[in-house]
């Protein structure tokens, strides 16, 4: 059964002339590594923000694990979101806090704000945080301040933060666009390894066609708010790219 089904998703931002998404259909099977390609403004960010309900669609369906996720509210919405990890282009760590506190943010769905403020987490949660840090190659960095790390290291911390959510889906909003090519490839390789070993489903927006070809099990091309291509990376050729990005470049 599909992990996530998206049907007829439409989004219009307040004051915008056109829909940001114009009827997107999408199905994700567990264990897939899906990369979303498309020019700036095609709706890539909007699509993944709709999936974890950071952006409210005008219409359409989001079905998570067989259940309607569109009507979730309050505690149910938070419970839904904690099953979905997310990483960002700008990492979005709390720069002033130590790495460990940033990773444990992934447990916010389970601890009260005050418990989080005084750093009161269960031993199991702290153990998961340390394991996650080791997993992303940052064992021993627990007490370093997030802002003292390099871009690649910060994205690793953000991945660890998402992992301690113990998510069933990982969303990425251009997570490597702010990194140099070598670091970008290393981060993609890390995501691919997590995908393979844990079977964690990935839905990652990318700017780089090469990285999508190298790591994705499936590529989706978005163009002007619609799916223009959906298939294996081997089928991403010149004509597909023209279709997705437009010939004007």
């Amino acid at each position: 059964m599909a992990l996530l089904v998206v049907r007829g998703l439409r989004v219009r931002y307040p004051g915008a002339q056109e829909d940001a998404l114009r009827g997107v259909d999408l199905e994700l099977a567990p264990g897939e590594f899906v990369c979303v390609l498309g020019p700036s403004g095609a709706g890539k960010s909007t699509l993944i923000r709709c999936i974890n309900r950071l952006v409210e669609p005008a219409s359409g369906q989001i079905i998570w694990d067989g259940h309607d996720a569109m009507r979730l509210k309050g505690a149910h919405l938070l419970a839904y979101r904690r099953q979905i990890g997310m990483i960002f282009q700008e990492f979005h760590l709390v720069d002033r806090l130590p790495v460990l506190a940033n990773v444990l943010m992934g447990r916010f769905g389970y601890v009260s704000p005050w418990q989080a403020a005084i750093g009161r987490y269960g031993p199991q949660e702290v153990a998961w945080a340390r394991q996650a840090l080791a997993r992303v190659g940052l064992a021993g960095y627990e007490l370093r301040r997030a802002r003292d790390l390099s871009g690649g290291q910060r994205q690793r911390v953000a991945i660890a933060r998402a992992l301690v959510q113990r998510p069933r889906l990982m969303l990425g909003d251009e997570p490597v666009s702010n990194l140099d090519p070598v670091t970008a490839r290393a981060i993609m390789a890390l995501l691919a390894e997590i995908n393979r070993r844990d079977g964690l489903t990935m839905l990652i927006n990318l700017h780089s066609v090469d990285l999508a070809r190298a790591f994705a099990t499936r590529v989706i091309g978005l163009s002007r708010g619609q799916v223009a291509f959906d298939g294996p990376p081997s089928r991403v050729d010149r004509s597909v790219l023209e279709q997705v990005y437009g010939t004007a470049g």
């Binding site: 950071l54 979005h92 989080a116 953000a158």
Partner: peptide
Amino acid sequence: GPQEAVLATGGGRGHMILFGILP
């Protein structure tokens, strides 16, 4: 950004204020 990151983890308004804004 950080506020969005807090919401994405399943954190609530309190988490967002304390971790996403206060620092």
